[in-house]
Amino acid sequence: MKKLVVAFGLLLSFNAFAEYGLNMTEGVTSISRDIYGLHMMVFWVSVVIAIVVFGAMFYSLYAHRQSKGAVAANFHESTKAELVWTIVPIIILIGMAIPASKVLIDLEDTTKAEMSVKITGHQWKWQYDYPQEGISFISNLSQGSRDAVNGTDAGREKADNYLLDVDKRLVLPVDTSIRFLITSNDVIHNWWVRDFGVKQDANPGFINDAWAKIDKIGTYRGQCAELCGKDHGFMPIVVDVVSKADYKKWVSKQQAAAAAAVASASKTWSKADLMAKGKTIYNANCAACHKADGSGMPPVFPAMKGSVIANGTAAGHINIVLHGKGAMPTFKMLGDSDLAAVMTYERNAFGNTGSVVQPSDVKSAR
């Protein structure tokens, strides 16, 4: 019985390890498949070299061992041997360099792009802009994952795509050559989607580019691959690749939502509406540093509860949120109504008694 239990445990272990591959991911883009093909070519060349070198070494150890009375040869130079071990590696390196150069050149060639997406890294979220379509939004870690972070181990195990889901996904059309313009608003980030074969640094003050033509409809996930601060592990990437027809529908929907957001910024909101909207925005953008209960993490991230700023003048509060201060970055990327809502929430939640902030107040302060 004991042996049966051990065997069953080993079987479960093997099933768990089966989820982890030992090789690269082939991916769903032409460039990712080229990288995979280059990797496999170099791998098999290395295997052949290892077989030849170690085969010759082990044969020599066996065939010329001392027990057979082998006597070591005494020579100092061999022009033939020197030519062989110089020319053969050169041929091998040239043979690998030619396809490698083609792949590297292809990696940098974004001239055939049919559309562009600008990607900006923030601590700790991604901003996506579609210049041609006039769409812009922020992608944060999903609230489900945020709740699981502060929950139990059992809750984290049950959470779907724990730390790998977002509230707003990047949407791209299938069979379309897409140029990614990648930069950062604060520190160095890295936008990495394994299945696309795209991994590019997001450097503040610079724009790096990459491209991909995705062949398969589906959902693909990635992560920030550059240590960028305390919540580095909480800024995942989720991309929905859809048909071209569905992409057009999505674009129309987003453009309508953007127009509605502009219109909403010109109206006067009730305090209740601002508070309801502000809580969601606070949890997505502010709770990581100032905590969901407003207690903060002093002295770097002060508490919102009893805050001099939140209970002070609205103008001072707006100025800090728009322009940042110390470790706090600017939040200009959010819309006027979003900023008005989150500041109203901060000024009236946690026992604070600050005033209401309207979108028009934010707009005039920009």
Rank of each mutant, 00 (worst) to 15 (best):
W211K: 05
T176L: 10
P173G: 07
K230S: 12
L274Q: 08
G278A: 06
S264V: 00
M275A: 09
S184A: 11
D209Q: 15
T176I: 02
R169I: 04
M275Q: 02
D240K: 02
R156F: 00
H189W: 08
D186Q: 11
S270K: 04
A210R: 10
D231M: 07
N190A: 14
T183K: 13
A263S: 10
G278D: 04
W192P: 02
H290R: 13
G218M: 01
A261I: 03
L170D: 07
V166R: 11
S270Q: 04
H290N: 03
K271P: 09
T219D: 11
D273A: 13
T176N: 03
R221D: 13
K277A: 04
V238Q: 05
K277N: 04
K271Q: 01
D165E: 09
I237G: 03
G155K: 07
D201I: 05
K291I: 12
D201T: 00
T183W: 00
D201A: 11
W192L: 13
I217S: 10
K216W: 01
V193K: 07
D273I: 03
F206R: 11
K168G: 11
W192N: 05
G222R: 11
S252Y: 12
N185S: 09
G205K: 14
S177V: 01
G155E: 15
K158I: 03
N185I: 00
D153S: 10
V262M: 15
D195H: 05
G155P: 13
S252C: 02
N283P: 02
N190S: 09
L164E: 13
T280C: 08
T268Q: 04
P204D: 14
N161H: 08
K213E: 08
N161C: 08
A265W: 01
N203I: 07
N208W: 07
H189I: 01
A210P: 08
C228S: 14
A225Q: 15
Y247G: 06
A258E: 04
K199Y: 14
L170S: 06
A258F: 06
N283R: 13
C224S: 12
N190C: 14
A276N: 14
Y220Q: 03
D246F: 06
C224M: 08
D165P: 02
L181H: 07
K199L: 04
K291T: 04
K199G: 11
K244H: 03
L164P: 05
V238C: 00
N190Q: 15
V239A: 09
A288P: 10
I281Y: 03
K291S: 00
A292Q: 06
R221V: 11
I182H: 02
F234G: 06
D201K: 02
F234N: 12
V251N: 13
A159Y: 06
K279G: 02
I178T: 14
W269T: 00
Y282D: 04
Q200N: 05
A245P: 02
